[in-house]
Amino acid sequence: MNVLVCVKRVPMTGGKIVLTADEQAIATQHLGFTISPHEECGVEEAVRIVEQHGGESVVLTLGPPEAEEQLRDAMALGMDRAIHLVIGDDEDWDAQATATAILDAIEAEHAAGVDFDLIFFGNESADSGGYQVGIRVAHALERPIATGLKGVAVEAGRVRCEQEVPGGRDVFDLPLPAVVTVKEGLNFPRYPSVPGRMRAQKKPIASSSPTAAPARLEKVRLVSPPGERKEAEILGHGPDAAPKVVELLQRIGVA
């Protein structure tokens, strides 16, 4: 059972998103970076599947040279090796270009004798939120895909997929090979152990530099949402404010 997980490096935004002067990016000089949350659960699930069924787990990212940090993080959690599609720091790849580069990498693995039975994506990336790279890859590979999953169970050449919907979970049952996109809450990702981190430093990363096609969803500029800042009315300080709060709750009609 060979499993591929595609992840994206994204900044950890704090209380307020600040843009660069040219409005093309988020000012990240004071921010840390992480694997986009949904995909971290994909990594955990892939590690569990390979622990249970054997095979190999591979993590892939398309990102700047610094994205090696996220690949090492994923390998510290137990992924066996990594594929790094290296792009420039200020390059902006749209979903179509990203999917094409990932497909080329999957094809290269195939040529080298490795075929993936299951490919994980996040349901949507934290930053650009396009909801489509996984679907584009699945379509090009002519493989079935289920999206937005909070349950993934591999058994006897099939994958049972659970999608949270109001009042319950819808179930899709797909034959392998398949593609899935997952959401945070799928599992509880483990913390990397110190030995895990040390092993990750020695695991192989295959790097290559794909060439971007011109963006067809072309970013013009980023804008902060207008007029959301409010001046909160201070009801009081400490427990003495309780009567004012209850008055408010009564006024709203929920007390």
């Binding site: 998103i17 939120g129 500029r221 804008v223 949402p225």
Partner: peptide, 10 residues
């Protein structure tokens, strides 16, 4: 973008 914390013109 960012779940609505940021807008993009494209």
């Amino acid at each position: 973008r960012w779940g609505g914390s940021l807008l993009e013109e494209a």
